[in-house]
């Protein structure tokens, strides 16, 4: 944490080496975040680059309050929202058309691709689930990242997980069965 603050201070002073370190540390995490949402390597790489440009551009405004990672994901979450807005894409419908997944067992199966199941739940439920289970953020941190109230986030996670469970059990989009 202290090292991170030092690195950020050095970046604020224009230290290229510190910036490289920061980007290399968090690149894969941010890329994975976008990949879980878009399912596309190219789009995720573009979004990741844009997020790091934003972070470096606005790094002087970062006040070392709370975890840097949470701030980074706040920028990433806002960027993703802008991306959807600009693309006018309803990812759950368009990206997964004809890509239905079924499994025979009543139990959840590890064979099923969770990434594809995730893409079939609504974006506002998918986002907190990814932040909680993939990145280990607390509900409070997620509520700050997504600028939503904590009970709202808890509700979205609960409903999202229920849908996810149904999809993983083989009920398409958790609607039937």
């Amino acid at each position: 944490m202290v090292d991170e603050i030092k690195i950020i201070d050095r970046i604020k002073n224009g230290d290229r080496y510190a910036m490289d370190m920061l980007i290399k540390t968090y690149y894969q995490s941010v890329f994975a975040y976008f990949y879980c949402h878009t399912g596309s390597r190219e789009v995720s790489m573009d979004l990741t680059q844009e997020v790091f440009i934003k972070v470096i551009t606005y790094i002087e405004g970062y006040k070392n309050k709370g975890r840097f990672k949470a701030w980074l994901f706040t920028v990433a979450a806002n960027h993703l929202r802008n991306h959807w807005k600009h693309q006018r894409v309803h990812h759950t419908e368009n990206e997964l058309k004809g890509n239905m997944i079924y499994i025979d067992s009543d139990d959840m199966s590890e064979k099923l691709d969770l990434k594809q199941a995730l893409l079939r739940i609504p974006h506002d439920q998918r986002e907190p689930i990814i932040l909680k289970y993939y990145y280990g953020f607390t509900t409070k941190e997620i509520s700050e990242i997504l600028a939503e109230k904590e009970p709202t986030i808890k509700g979205r996670i609960r409903y999202g997980l229920e849908k996810l469970k149904k999809i993983l059990r083989g009920e398409p989009d958790g609607q039937s069965r």
């Binding site: 970046i11 490289d20 980007i23 890329f31 680059q49 790091f52 440009i53 972070v55 790094i59 002087e60």
Partner: peptide, 18 residues
């Protein structure tokens, strides 16, 4: 993501250093 691809992001972001 290859190291070269990440390096490219670093080079681009460097233009925006304070």
């Amino acid at each position: 993501v290859s190291a070269d691809e990440i390096e490219f992001v670093c080079d681009t972001a460097a233009n925006y250093l304070p």
